[in-house]
Structure formats: structure tokens, C-alpha cells
Design a protein around this nucleic acid. Sequence first.
DNA 1: GCGATACTTGCAGCCAGACGCAAATAAGCA
DNA 2: TGCTTATTTGCGTCTGGCTGCAAGTATCGC
Lengths: 130, 130
Amino acid sequence: MVQMSKKRPATPKLAARCGGPIDDLLNPELFKALGDPTRATLLACLAKCGRFCTVTEVAECCAVDLSVVSRHLALMERADVLESVKEGRMVRYRVRFHSLAVALHKLADAIEGCCPDKGAGNRRGGCCDK
Amino acid sequence: MVQMSKKRPATPKLAARCGGPIDDLLNPELFKALGDPTRATLLACLAKCGRFCTVTEVAECCAVDLSVVSRHLALMERADVLESVKEGRMVRYRVRFHSLAVALHKLADAIEGCCPDKGAGNRRGGCCDK
DNA sequence: GCGATACTTGCAGCCAGACGCAAATAAGCA
DNA sequence: TGCTTATTTGCGTCTGGCTGCAAGTATCGC
């Protein structure tokens, strides 16, 4: 296995030029999807429920209009937080449990990998590609 | 060790009444802080840099006004993403590596714990307190 | 086909937040 | 004290996003 040199940039300006795993993992679209209180409620309810739920069912867990719920669910699907299946006239949404958990674990690992006080030489390969 | 009953709510509506670890971990303030492209850039640069950086240094890694950077950093500090120290006339910010990584790992675990196709009976105690 | 149900989309109002500029505050230095 | 540097704050602007209502589309059962 080739040992890549994982240098740490001296300044934030240099860090900007230096790609690392954190750049792709810190996806604003994903976190925007998780950053709205209404969507957080919907997501938590869907997660606790576990199964595929219809838009009407999900709408019963918070006070906003059904059309708003429909839009929130569609947005979270575009951000790969949810997946959906169409069954006749209804659409069922479910949390993308694995994909979401993996994305969060990877980001957490990338962040920890950037931490300088981590024993000798960054575990997990450091934060920077060169 | 007492075995708590970790039932899964039948509907999203019931799920809303049923508290679980995911409710607290899915903190909109945190994800709002991560959900802006400019803040994502600043955070990635700070993470790759690893050390405490001044506002002026951080501002060099993206094209917005210094005052904007100052506001973004303060916002991320309020969301517990960054920490700061004041040194004379300058303020240095650094990523809260451990705290951030732990929050993300916990959320990822809580989400995985909600996933129904996880062998027999939810690992990690399920998603619901009752 | 017709009405009912399930969901999406168009529209408009409204508020939050991102931004730049300029002024204010704070701290170092001569 | 006066000047410079570092950062914050006030203000106005503007865009984006959340929301509700109403209308549109799709599907089901009769």
C-alpha cells in the first residue's frame, strides 16, 4: 500500500487549495435538508416509524399543511435522506437509514481525522490529500 | 440491567408522541450551521488547518467580506461547531473536533438503531423510549 | 364516466438570513 | 495621545425558503 503524504496546510488559505475527504462529505444540500425544524420533526417521525409511510400519514405528525409536507419530503428525497415508492395513488417515503448513517459516520471520521491531538500522525489518513 | 421495552410506533403520528434518542440528536441549529455553502467552506478550511486561526486568516479562504466571515464564525460557535479564544486584539477559532464528531456519530447510530432490517430486534436499543 | 381520495404544483405573502459597506469598539504600538 | 490593526455591529438590500390556499393531476372504486 502506497503511503500518501498527508500534509497539513499551514493556513486556511492554503487549506482551501488542498482537497481532503471533508470537502465532499460536508455537503450543504444534505445539511440544509436536516436544518429545518419541520423537516427534522418529519424525519424523526419517519425514522421512529421505520417503515414506508404515505404523505398523509406523515402529515399527521406536525401542524403544517399537507402540501408543505409533500414539498419537505420531496426535498429530503432529493438530498438522499429519504427514498420513495409509488403505490397506486399514494406515495410512500422511508428514511434511507444506511446511506444516511454512513454519510454521517464518514463525516465524523473525517473530522476526527483532522484533529491534531490524535496521537502520533493523524489516524485515518489525515485531512488533506497532499 | 433492566430490559426496557423499545416498541416501535405504528404510525408517524404516534411516533411524534414517542420520544427517542433521535429527537435530541437531530438538532436543527447544528445542521443549519453546516448547511450554508460559505460556512461549509470555512469549516473545511479550519478543520484541515487543525489549529486555532484568526478571523483574518480564515477570511482569506473565501471571497466574502471579512464582516461576513466574522458573523459565520460566531454563528458556528453558537452551534458548538467551533470554539474560540481571545488573544489580545485577535480572536482565534478552531473546530470542536471531538464534540462535533461525537454528535455526528451518535446521530448516525440513532438512525441505524431505527432501521428495522437490522437482524433480530433493534440493536442499540431501538429508536423509541417506550 | 363520475366522484372521491392522494398527492403535486402554481401563486403570493412573509420572514429569515446572507451580504457589503461603513462606523464602532478593542487592543497594540510609537 | 494618535495611529494602526483586528474584529464586531448597525443598517439597508436582496435573495431564498417556508407557508397556506387553491387549482391541477393521477388513481381508485362504483
